[in-house]
Design a binder for these strands. Structure first.
Length: 416
DNA sequence: TCTGGGGTCCTAGGACCC
DNA sequence: TCTGGGGTCCTAGGACCC
């Protein structure tokens, strides 16, 4: 067994400006030669910067900035769209390379992976963690073409914070016992979880730095930001983090959303957009062998107000034929509460469970729409066609009432 | 400057049950 | 009679991250 006092050995592997790297790898002769490169924007013209090359960042370009503003700061920049397919392919390749070298790998996002190497000391002949990290960095680059930076320490928080001084393309490890001193050298805004809102609240009280906030003590912090957040912040400022690195995906929700090029006020048009998104996410759900119990519909109004409604099924479901009618009712409800042009619609599935669906459901009287074997069989058939003939092989039939349709189909099939 | 798209986690109130 | 208390689930919204 591991000695209780043995420090953990955690690494955070962070791909350097991942989207820019991927765009360049996919087009080495074109944007690969472009120093001033921005990945982002969108066909709608309402886009933001997803990632910018280091050369661009010197002009003040930052991610999440509207592309229009970025181009004002850096007029010579070349803007390319987000290469989604390549990004997920390259992300999987990096993850695979890491899984070949670490017993525990957790993907925190497409371009960030936590590794827990605790217990591998003998395997790596007791070499320093820094040496192991450096070798992993080089091997990942060789194997995938992706340059990463690696932060290391005795927990996830410290590993994450150490990745910053490691950038770009380096390794930085905080030694056991050095956590508190290392974190004390940072700004409050550097702490993950400290965003604009909390920063503003602390600043109102005159707290600008980690040193300020530690000096004032837990008692005052509790009064100002509540006991929960105060305790949380206090531990972060000491570089403490007990959370485990959990191997595998462990996804909690699946969602899709679209911002329109122009605000939409037409209910039928909104419902059509909703149908397309619903078909897409239920397809992803089945791909992953999952079931969902909760569906959420989100609208963003023209004035950027974001509203959402959700509903939970008594039993987990997987087919768009059952999800869509509920989603459409939630959309109608949102529209009835405030009738104003929408700039975005989104739909999400949560309360996820591993499949397969329970075979018999609805043994009780219920008015909830429930999923039948026929619903599932139809979706599986459509999935099969898409696998063989491509994503667009089967297109949803516009504004049909899928609940009526599924009931009719059920009768036909039963009749055979 | 006029704000993407994919997520996670937290809080708080109400329903419901014991 | 006019009032409990804990636990869990659901829902809405917000902060935050990459």
């Amino acid at each position: 067994m591991v000695t209780p006092s043995a420090p953990r050995r955690v690494l955070l592997v962070d791909c350097d400006m991942f989207y820019v790297q991927v765009a360049r790898l996919e087009d080495p002769e074109g944007v690969g030669r472009e120093p001033l490169l921005i990945v982002g924007g969108s066909a709608s013209g309402r886009g933001v910067v997803t990632s910018a090359s280091y050369e661009c960042r010197r002009y003040g370009v930052r991610s999440a900035m509207p592309t229009a503003e970025a181009l004002r700061l850096c007029p010579d920049a070349v803007v390319v769209g987000v290469p989604r397919g390549s990004v997920s392919r390259r992300s999987r390749a990096v993850r695979q390379a890491l899984e070949d070298r670490s017993p525990v790998v957790q993907a925190a996002s497409v371009d960030e992976f936590y590794l827990d190497l605790t217990g591998t000391e003998r395997l790596f002949h007791h070499e320093p963690l820094e040496t192991t990290a450096t070798r992993i960095r080089e091997e990942v680059l060789d194997e995938t073409g992706i340059s990463v930076s690696i932060g290391g320490g005795t927990n996830r928080l410290v590993a994450k914070l150490a990745a910053r001084p490691a950038k770009p393309g380096g390794v930085f490890v905080v030694p056991p016992g050095g956590e508190e001193e290392f974190v004390a050298s940072l700004e409050l805004r550097d702490l993950p979880g400290v965003g604009p809102a909390l920063l503003g609240t602390l600043k109102e009280r005159g707290l600008e730095t980690i040193a300020d906030a530690r000096r004032v003590g837990l008692g005052w912090l509790e009064r100002w930001i509540g006991s929960g957040r105060a305790a949380w912040l206090d531990r972060r400022m000491r570089g403490e983090d007990e959370s485990e690195v959990v191997h595998g995906e462990g996804r909690k929700s699946i969602s899709a959303e679209r911002t329109f090029s122009k605000d939409i006020d037409d209910d039928d048009e909104l419902a059509r957009r909703l149908l397309a998104l619903t078909v897409s996410i239920t397809g992803t759900l089945r791909d992953k062998g999952l079931l969902a119990r909760t569906v959420t519909v989100k609208l963003r109004d023209g004035d950027f107000t974001t509203r959402q409604r959700s509903q939970t099924f008594p039993e987990p479901v997987e087919s768009d034929r059952v999800v869509f009618p509920v989603a459409r009712a939630l959309l109608a409800d949102l529209r009835n509460r405030r009738r104003t042009p929408s700039r975005l619609i989104g739909v999400g599935l949560s309360n996820l469970l591993e499949g397969p669906a329970p075979r018999q459901m609805a043994l009780f009287e219920t008015h909830e729409p429930h999923e039948t074997e026929v619903d599932r069989a139809l979706n599986r058939a459509v999935d099969g066609l898409r696998d063989r003939f491509g994503r667009d092989a089967v297109v949803p039939g516009g504004m049909v009432d899928t609940r009526e349709e599924s009931a009719q189909d059920g009768r036909e099939h039963d009749g055979r």
